[in-house]
Simulated assay, not measured.
Amino acid sequence: MTTPLHTVCPHCDAVNRMPPERLGEAPTCGKCQASLFTGQPVDLSGARFLKHIERSDLPVLVDFWAPWCGPCRSMAPFYAQAARQLEPRVRVAKVDTEANQDIGARFGIRSIPTLALFHGGREVARQPGAMDTNGILAWVQQHLR
């Protein structure tokens, strides 16, 4: 028997347990019944951010960005396209560093956009600068090996 994976619902933040082989079966949250994987980046802030990176067994890719940042806005459609391809193997999230300055400070975000990959509650890789979809996918795959 395989060990169940914990994944945090992008809607209600409930922690769900499921067998890894069910990830591709469009699983829904046991609490709110919404889809656990939407193919879109999840906006995270405050305690939601910590819950998603600390309680999920899935890797969590985070885009640290700000609304006034031109490169951040130009990368957004590429990041959304990457989310559609990475889920359900990776949770894809965004953190607005303007609205969540405490998170940016806690993780030492010095430039935006910055991608950070978390796994098991720890940061495993970081990449500053805008990238296209293929660049994002290649970078994530490189660090998940």
Rank of each mutant, 00 (worst) to 15 (best):
D43C: 05
A14N: 09
A130W: 10
P19A: 15
L58C: 04
A34G: 02
W68D: 09
C9N: 03
D57S: 11
A130M: 08
E54R: 14
S45E: 06
Q81N: 12
R126Y: 02
P10C: 08
P113H: 13
R89M: 10
F49P: 00
D13A: 15
R110E: 14
H6G: 06
L117C: 01
E25A: 15
K31Y: 08
A93C: 14
D57N: 11
K94P: 00
A26W: 07
M1V: 12
T3E: 13
Q85N: 01
L44D: 01
A26V: 14
S35H: 04
M1A: 13
M18Y: 05
M75F: 03
G121V: 13
L44S: 03
F118Y: 14
D43I: 05
P88N: 01
R145S: 04
G121S: 07
G129V: 03
A80K: 01
A47T: 10
L86K: 00
I136E: 00
V124Y: 07
N134K: 11
G30D: 05
C9P: 02
L50I: 13
I109S: 01
A80L: 00
W68A: 15
L137N: 00
P10S: 08
L50K: 10
E87Y: 08
N100V: 03
P128N: 02
P4A: 13
L23C: 10
K51E: 10
A80F: 01
W68P: 02
L44Q: 07
L115G: 01
E87F: 14
P41H: 06
T114F: 03
M75V: 01
P77M: 12
P88W: 09
Q85I: 00
H143E: 00
P41C: 06
N100G: 03
L44V: 07
G30T: 13
K31I: 09
C12M: 13
A82R: 02
M75T: 01
L61C: 04
P27S: 07
M131S: 05
A99C: 02
P20K: 12
Q33G: 05
A93N: 06
W65Q: 03
W65M: 04
T2K: 11
Q33W: 07
R48L: 11
L61V: 03
M18R: 15
A34T: 10
P67F: 04
I103Q: 04
L115Y: 12
R145I: 00
A26R: 15
C29N: 07
R22Y: 11
Q85F: 01
I53R: 05
M75C: 02
N16H: 12
V124K: 15
R73H: 09
